[in-house]
């Protein structure tokens, strides 16, 4: 068996842990659990966005010894509610003209590059946030309910698009409340509750 891409040991967040995880390249790992149990905090700790205990490695490189900006480009967190710091779509996705196929696959308007972000619906923004993240070619994508609040067809389109990313070698750590979705997309399923992280 190959070496894991992302490994955690004794990882603790503000509300839970220690967590021991191994994530392999091209693998989709889903995490389910009740609200407030710390799923988002676990993803944020993996991305090093919050202070935490324990250690995380990416291909043998320690998180604490890797420059934070570099780490976060490699282990990229996509929150449930994305932030938009610039006005237009093209300011968020570099060379958006080269991503016509992605725009089409995600059901986004092909000419949206010059649009103000505010013109997009909340569902379109959610899909644009995924495209913005994937264009940075992370090794691990941390997805916090990426299809929440989307209609079924859009959700399935995103699943198919993310499956293509996975097939290119990106590891996905996917938080979801949808058990059917988890069964559909996951290679490995974990459940998180007050007692900790357990493989389902």
């Amino acid at each position: 068996m190959s070496e894991p891409l992302l490994t955690t040991r004794d990882l603790t967040t503000a509300v839970g842990g220690p967590f021991e995880l191994d994530v392999f390249a091209g693998q989709c790992l889903t995490i389910m659990g009740p609200s407030g149990v710390g799923k988002s905090l676990l993803l944020r700790a993996l991305a090093d966005l919050d202070p935490h205990g324990g250690e995380v490695w990416l291909q043998g490189a320690r998180q604490s010894q890797t420059p934070p900006a570099l780490w976060r480009r490699r282990v990229l967190y996509v929150p449930a509610a994305a932030g938009w710091w610039a006005d237009t779509v093209s300011e968020h996705v570099a060379e958006i003209g080269k991503h016509i196929n992605d725009l089409r696959a995600l059901g986004l308007p092909l000419d949206c590059g010059d649009w103000p972000v505010t013109r997009l619906s909340s569902g379109e923004k959610q899909r644009l946030a995924l495209l913005r993240a994937v264009t940075l070619t992370p090794q691990v994508l941390l997805l916090d309910e990426p299809t929440a609040n989307l209609d079924a067809d859009s959700g399935l389109a995103i699943e198919a698009w993310l499956a293509a990313c996975k097939n290119r070698g990106t590891a996905l750590v996917w938080v979801t409340h949808d058990a059917v979705q988890a069964e559909r997309v996951a290679d490995v399923r974990w459940g998180l509750d007050a007692h900790g992280l357990k493989r389902i």
């Binding site: 900006a69 480009r73 990229l76 932030g83 710091w85």
Partner: peptide, 22 residues
Amino acid sequence: RERLNIEAQLAQGVPFTAATRR
């Protein structure tokens, strides 16, 4: 007020000084 925007940039690998420059 703009914590989501700042963190979105940090999550993309933007340094903190650049993410808070404006």
